[in-house]
């Protein structure tokens, strides 16, 4: 079970800033270990966000995104008490969803 994300969503007027910290190795597939063997690629390929169940954000990521990625985006039309859910899926098919309340 992958480690949980840290999500903060703060509303300021019509704009809500969502900040997400994800726990992931984001291995590029280009690094070699001490023995000279290539470390297999393992990175998040898809990130989606839902506001009260409605999709508001989708992203396709590649190996250039760093380890333990930090994502920040602004969504319109959210208010305090609304639910933001973030889902990521990686190239191994592992996935994680976490939820936060807009404050």
């Amino acid at each position: 079970m992958p480690d949980p994300m840290r999500i903060r969503a703060q509303a300021a007027g019509d704009k809500t800033t969502v900040r997400v910290l994800m726990s992931h190795e984001m291995e590029t597939g280009l690094r070699k270990d001490a023995a000279g063997k290539t470390i297999p690629a393992w990175f998040i390929q898809e990130v989606t966000a839902q506001l009260n169940g409605k999709p508001v954000f989708a992203a396709e990521w590649g190996p250039s995104v760093s380890k333990n990625p930090f994502l920040q985006f602004v969504v319109k039309g959210a208010k305090a008490g609304d639910k933001i859910a973030i889902t990521w899926r990686d190239n191994k098919g592992e996935t994680r969803t976490d939820e936060a309340t807009v404050s």
Binding site: R6, R19, L21, N68, F70
Partner: peptide, 12 residues
């Protein structure tokens, strides 16, 4: 500064 991955370790 924002989004310090140390927070993941704090939670753990």
């Amino acid at each position: 500064e924002d989004g310090n991955p140390a927070e993941l370790f704090e939670a753990k």
